[in-house]
Design a protein around this nucleic acid. Sequence first.
DNA 1: CCTCATCGTGTACAAAGTACACAATTGTAA
DNA 2: TTACAATTGTGTACTTTGTACACGATGAGG
Lengths: 253, 253
Amino acid sequence: MLSKERLIEFSDDARKNYLDHISIDCVVFGFHGGQMKVLLLKTPDEEKWYLPGGFVLKQEPIDDAATRILQERTGLDKIFLQQFRVFGDPDRSKFHNDLYRDMLPAGENWFSGRFLSIGYYALVDFFDVNPQPDQFSELCAWRDLDDMPELQLDHELIFKSALDTLRLQLNYQPIGYNLMPKDFTMPELQKLYETILDKKLDRRNFQRRVLAFGILTRADKPRKGGAHKAPYLYSFDLENYTNALTEGFKGGW
Amino acid sequence: MLSKERLIEFSDDARKNYLDHISIDCVVFGFHGGQMKVLLLKTPDEEKWYLPGGFVLKQEPIDDAATRILQERTGLDKIFLQQFRVFGDPDRSKFHNDLYRDMLPAGENWFSGRFLSIGYYALVDFFDVNPQPDQFSELCAWRDLDDMPELQLDHELIFKSALDTLRLQLNYQPIGYNLMPKDFTMPELQKLYETILDKKLDRRNFQRRVLAFGILTRADKPRKGGAHKAPYLYSFDLENYTNALTEGFKGGW
DNA sequence: CCTCATCGTGTACAAAGTACACAATTGTAA
DNA sequence: TTACAATTGTGTACTTTGTACACGATGAGG
């Protein structure tokens, strides 16, 4: 939480640089070794956590803003990041609003009034990330999906909405490019899908179905060293992968 | 186009009542008898057309705002209306911006500066609609999909994006409730799907597939009067329909 | 070299998707 | 009245996709 002096400073700054009453909230899903986490922030004063977010610079495309915000929190670049919905009920408001309501008169407090929030979700490997708190928080950390704390405001809704969208997306878009090491085995990729869907999949059928997408290439040599039969290594065929990203998988009608 | 006096009046009004720098644009698809149209507006001064849009009242949920805007243009209520994306590149701006740029200094002109637009799309029966121009336009009319005029700004992009979303949506959501008369025949419903997809579908397979959704109930009596065999009449089973709307159709993984 | 867990491939069955045949119905024209 | 054209309802054969499971192959450890 900011001191009154820092708040005044921030408000003046924000008024100059940022679009008013617009915020971006990111649901950053982190994966590694069959685990799935979400990146959350916390202030020292409050018990509730909140999603990483930020504001849009006056001359900045909103996708760039989301990328920048993510970069500031995770250090990561070039990751899967997608807008999925706007949250804008009048009774919601950027939580800083409530937090700083009493410190400054509304005219001087940039956080006062109604905020719309544009929801983005991202998929990252949480081993690549060293979470960085922002200027409002003391803590930025990965939280397990089945150990979620209570969230501020409508961040619960935003989070659930992101998860639903992700699971739907899985049906007609490839994922995994920046979530897997360059080379990986089929069981490892399957684990990723199972984690997202929270559901067991058949080993053999998964393999055939994924291969049918045509976005993987198999290496000649299997990975040695495991306690059992060495599985083949695969890597993403980037051309087909990005093609599938824009085209989508399955027809329907 | 507004006169300078009306512009001043509007700007003062807007500043009091609307959220700043946020607009809503609606892609209203109109259907009837195998035709598909889009609702567009035009000013007398400009050759280019634009999508019906509007602004969000300070205490209004954004979905309500979209509903209200649609109601003002079409007179319709309770129709399928869905948010699909935010458009917010800095080089876009509500076209009124350009239109009125020179009439007032930026400080007094509410339209000055960058606008974000929230895209909604709607499906209606254009026979139910008597298009109403807004205060900026002289004309509000249905335009055929294969006779589209050039559109202002990024409205071309918004329109295309809406059409893509609609076609995708068709794979896992029921449609048609407010596009068909209360009772309708299977060929009529098929025509709707073919129009949206711009693609012929097999008569018999369409029937079986749609029936398998379980959202239709067949009436006892067929529709008489046609020049050929009388087809059965169907109507939507509203409970199953709304259920399918929230649940979605097909699994995937 | 035997055991065990795991991996790759194959196969049998079910469900869904596709293509087409045929009979039934209705208004119209001979 | 009757033959005809257009269209609808149902059925069926075929293909593709999805699901469940069996088998042999591989590699590490005892």
